[in-house]
């Protein structure tokens, strides 16, 4: 059981770290959001799964509650993370940040 939890934490931390590197490597706000949303959501699924496994493995009311709350946090994360990224991208576009190195920009042509 411990090994499973360590493996889940390892996968999750790898992807979360990748998201942090993506923030540093990419050139503008839109490409950075790619790294920030995808990698951190996927990484957080695995770290939360590790918490859920730990909670159900320890057992008892307190740890079962921990696991249930982690499941609810996971659902909230899955809904709010892409929504927040969409809000940031839209706000950035509205306030005049153009995508760097863009080969095509249909949103520009609309206005």
């Amino acid at each position: 059981m411990n090994i499973l939890i360590y493996v889940l934490f390892g996968i999750g931390l790898t992807f979360n770290g990748l998201g942090a590197i993506a923030l540093l490597r990419f050139p503008d706000v839109y490409t950075r959001l790619h790294g920030a949303t995808k990698a951190t959501t996927f990484g957080s699924i695995f770290t939360t799964a590790a918490v859920i496994a730990y909670g159900f493995a320890r057992g008892g009311p307190a740890f079962d509650t921990l696991a249930i709350h982690a499941i609810i946090a996971l659902i909230a994360l899955l809904i709010t993370n892409p929504t927040g990224a969409h809000a940031i991208a839209r706000a950035a576009y509205r306030s005049g940040v153009k995508p760097k190195y863009a080969v095509v920009d249909k949103l520009e042509e609309k206005k």
């Binding site: 992807f15 993506a22 503008d28 995808k38 996927f42 995508p99 249909k106």
Partner: peptide
């Protein structure tokens, strides 16, 4: 596809090959 997208991001982070744009 979420798993696939993470390996895609990893690939682009490491190689820096991007060709971005906004499409409809």
């Amino acid at each position: 596809s979420m798993a696939k997208s993470n390996f895609d991001v990893a690939y682009r982070v490491i190689t820096g090959k991007i060709r971005p744009g906004i499409v409809r």
